[in-house]
Amino acid sequence: MTGTEAPRPAIVVEHLSKRYGRMLALDDVSLSVGANDMFALLGPNGAGKTTLIHILCTILAPDGGSASVAGFDVKKQAVKARRNIGVVFQEPSLDDRLTAYENLNFHGLVYQVGGAERKQRITEMLELVELSDWRDKLVRTFSSGMKRRLEIARALLHNPRILFLDEPTVGLDAQSRERIWAYLDQLRRQRELCIVVTTHYIEEVENCDRVCIIDHGKILADGTPDALKAAHGSELVRVTPRDKAAAEAIRERYPDAKDGHGGTLVLAVDDVNFIDGFLASFGTRVSQVSLDRPSLESVFLSLTGRELRDKGADEQDRMRAAGRRAGRR
């Protein structure tokens, strides 16, 4: 915990569950997020992140348990809760036949932001995301990075206390991703704001206050990045066996070996002499050996038994990615 925990948390989730047919998307999830926290939900596709966000945004009803945002129950006081949240959904939700200004003005009217204040907020928010020059351009002419930035501006227009960002950087190039994180940092320095972000880019969550690792609808770990690394992380050796036989032999010797991406094997370093021992036996049978310092990646691996990006994108995701422009490897 960061010690900046406000007395009243922004989000409280208790024993939440949600089921789609036979699949359990959320399984008894409980957590709370402080009013000024940058909170990351980390997990592979289909882990239940988006389901959780949708429940917190009041557009999906949970099957069991309760959740409140900004002190309002998402089921019974949905409208009050909605006034206090800004949301950037995974799929773009701008009207691309309207201009940037028209999209923001629409949002301001719908959220009942008064006339003069609305105009001022629109100007401020466009400045924040560096789109002032694009104010009167149709959104359909924007790049995906610009659209994302505009969506963030829009989500903040009505001064929400909580900002939800569902995969805000997916499909964006590195530069756009960096910018988006810079805006969020800047915002948090200006005012109290709780940010909940889901991502499966592990490097992006390193500077969050808290990270919650979720998989198969269950919370596996919850804490500061450092605490998680200390508790679950270990030094890892990543090796690339020369051939199948070598891989088999390594597996036999180290039954705990896990599959990494690209045919690598990942071994946990349990004592100082581990590398020496390994190289002595298999030095000639591997083409590459690398050492990973404890990172959230290794935390994730040790908790879920697989690497985060290893899990193939589901069909819908791949289509979505194809529909976007910028490259994601």
Binding site: I85, F89, S93, H107, Y111
Partner: peptide, 10 residues
């Protein structure tokens, strides 16, 4: 996706 923007509003 625009419908979401409206549905999540008050």
């Amino acid at each position: 996706g625009f419908l979401r923007e409206v549905l999540v509003s008050p």
